[in-house]
Structure formats: C-alpha cells, structure tokens
C-alpha cells in the first residue's frame, strides 16, 4: 500500500482542486446567470446600464404596444404612478414616459425601482437610454418628483411579440443606502 501513496496523493490533490473549483463555480453562477439573462432575456430582467441611440432604423410598418405597471412594495409609503398607461410605438422609435413619485410619509426615504418585463423574451429588446431605475431615488418627506424614462424598442424584436408589459416595483432601500453612505463616508 505504501507504494501507492504518491498516486493517492496526486488523485486527492486533483479532487480537492475540483471541490474548490466547484465551490467557486457555485458563486460564479451568480454573474453567469446575469450574463445568461442578458443574452436570452430569461426572467424579464432589463439591462441596468443606459443604451445608446445611434443608427437605429425605425420600422414604420410595425406597431408594438408597451404597457407600464407601477407597484410599491409592501411598506413603501410612496405614491408611484406612470403618467402614461400604455404607448403604441414603432420599433426603433424613441419615446419618453414620465413617472410620478410622491413621498407621502413624514420621513426621508430612498427608493429603488426594480424593472421587470413580461414576456421575458422582450426584455433584451427594450433599450432604455435614460431611466430612474438605474439609480436610487432619495425623496424627502412630502417631496414629489417626475422621473423620465426614455426608451426605444429594438427593431429586432421577434415578430410574434405584439405587446409587452414593463413593471416597476418600488422598494424602500433607505437602510441599505445609509449603510453604503456610512461605509463611504
């Protein structure tokens, strides 16, 4: 058995490397999942960075309905509405929709809007050049704000999608925002 020790050691080292690698892979699944979502639009996540609007050909022959839904998560005491319920757009055409937010409570709150698109496959064709959802929104007690969102629908949107829904859920992230500010400051 002694004669086999070097081989045993070699196999063990390899296997331990696999274990460590797979533990890392478990965490690597997090960015991998995001990349996968971005490529396929699985789960309706939209990109959280601004798109650019250059050389986009407007497809005049086609109409797509985009519907906007706003929600505040439980315990988020803001009034949050989209000024437009739905728009009818040509793919490639630039549009602006304004959202209204009002902190009705008596304390300062930082909000974060989380977008979600359904059907999820439409998400990657929704290009936002400007969106309040890219950043956190601090509102003082009683303050109100109009937040613009500029977007265009990629003309490559599959033919079978004639309309889709964009939902924003507004979360109270005051605590997390304070922690970050504290850490930075």
């Amino acid at each position: 058995m002694e004669s086999k020790q070097p081989e045993i050691r070699k196999t063990v080292i390899k296997l331990v490397a696999v274990v460590i690698g797979m533990f890392g892979f478990g965490f690597a699944l997090v960015p991998l999942y995001d990349v996968f979502c971005e490529i396929t639009g699985i789960n309706g996540k939209t990109s959280d960075v601004a798109a650019t609007y250059e050389n986009v050909v407007v497809d005049k022959g086609r109409w797509v309905n985009v519907e906007f839904i706003t929600r505040t998560n439980s315990g988020m005491p803001w009034e949050f509405k989209s000024q437009t319920k739905r728009v009818r757009v040509n793919p490639g055409e630039m549009h602006q929709v304004d959202f209204y937010a009002h902190n009705t409570s008596s304390r300062d709150i930082v909000g974060q809007a989380v977008p979600s698109v359904s059907p999820g496959t439409a998400a990657i064709y929704l290009n936002k050049t400007e969106c309040f959802c890219f950043d956190q929104q601090p509102l003082k007690a009683g303050e109100e704000v109009i937040m613009p969102m500029r977007f265009y629908v990629d003309p490559a949107l599959p033919e079978d999608i004639t309309y889709f829904t964009l939902q924003y859920t507004l979360y109270d992230v005051t605590e997390q925002a304070q922690e970050i500010a504290y850490n930075r400051g």
Partner: peptide, 10 residues
Amino acid sequence: IAVMPVLAGA
C-alpha cells in the same frame, strides 16, 4: 464532488 460544493455555495 461536483455538486455538494455548489450546495455549500447556495
């Protein structure tokens, strides 16, 4: 050894 580490990660 391929998946138990992933569970540990989760």
